[in-house]
Design a protein around this nucleic acid. Structure first.
Length: 260
DNA sequence: AGTACCACCTGACGGC
DNA sequence: TGCCGTCAGGTGGTAC
């Protein structure tokens, strides 16, 4: 699930449910999920409240009031769930913040690829993680310059978090589908014009997706994301969706449409 | 710098 | 029903 639009939706969800509430206690799941020392987290969070959030690519930072940031990365299957503490708890809880109001905010992580950390300096965090500018916040000119300076397959470049961050496997497919560009197209063969158009499409795709809660089933009919299946009908022409491998990831595209 | 592979984990699904 | 292979929207490391 969690690429830029998903994480933006998580951010909005956390903002709407979990800010400015007294934290009672914490629960810790599997150790493997924690980059930060659990005792440090206890000390930093217990009795405090969350004051604001900041998304950087696929990372969500959550500020503890008058202190530093909790960092959440969702891996492939992570998500948030805010629920009343009275009955059964959700499965796969990796980290739970129990508020004094009787509600919990849980970091759910079945596949354990997610990570929870503590960040004292946001700029240093970006450097350590080698994150390029956020794909939703960077300007068009910067986007074009970054991609013009790279070589190789366009899909791989879009997913490289050190160039620009937030785009993952499925949204790179969506961007290239809507730009009618083949995923393996060599970057050096694209015109600046193509990149400008790609920036506009990317912004539009993110905006629309976030508006729809980043749920594949609720995306507009012209999106390819809901049809990630070999042989599915292309939304636009008579073609069938095909699956190929691009840098080790499953890539879905329409050979009829993506001829550039 | 770019690519190809492997590893980390667990669940779902299709074939036999 | 059970076992097996494959796949899944993440990143990080190695070697060429």
């Amino acid at each position: 699930m969690p690429e830029l639009p998903d994480v933006e939706v998580f951010k909005q969800y956390l903002d709407a449910t979990s800010l400015h509430k007294k934290i009672d206690k914490l629960e810790f799941g599997d150790d493997i999920l924690f980059d930060a020392d659990q005792e440090v987290l206890e000390k930093k969070l217990q009795g405090k409240e969350l004051s604001k959030t900041h998304r950087i690519g696929k990372h969500l930072l959550v500020q503890v009031k008058n202190d530093d940031w909790l960092s959440l990365h969702f891996g492939m299957t992570g998500k948030l769930e805010y629920y009343q503490r009275n009955g059964e708890e959700p499965e796969y809880q990796g980290f739970v913040i129990r508020f004094k109001n009787g509600y919990n905010l849980a970091f759910i992580c079945p596949r354990k690829f997610g990570r929870i950390g503590w960040v004292e300096n946001v700029e240093e965090f970006e450097e350590e993680k080698e994150l390029g500018p956020d794909a939703l916040r960077l300007e068009k000119q910067e986007f074009v310059e970054i991609l013009e300076s790279k070589r190789g397959m366009i899909k791989t470049a879009l997913m490289d978090q050190s160039s620009l961050c937030g785009i993952g496997n499925i949204y790179s497919d969506e961007i290239l589908y809507q730009c009618r560009i083949h995923p393996k197209k060599d970057l050096s063969k694209l015109e600046p014009n193509d990149l400008e158009e790609m920036y506009d499409k990317m912004q539009e795709i993110f905006r629309i997706s976030i508006e729809h809660g980043a749920k594949p089933s609720e995306l507009p009919a012209h999106f390819i994301i809901p049809r990630r299946e070999e042989g599915a009908d292309c939304p636009e022409q008579n073609g069938k969706i095909e699956r190929i491998e691009v840098s080790g990831r499953g890539c879905y595209y329409c050979p009829e449409v993506q001829t550039k």
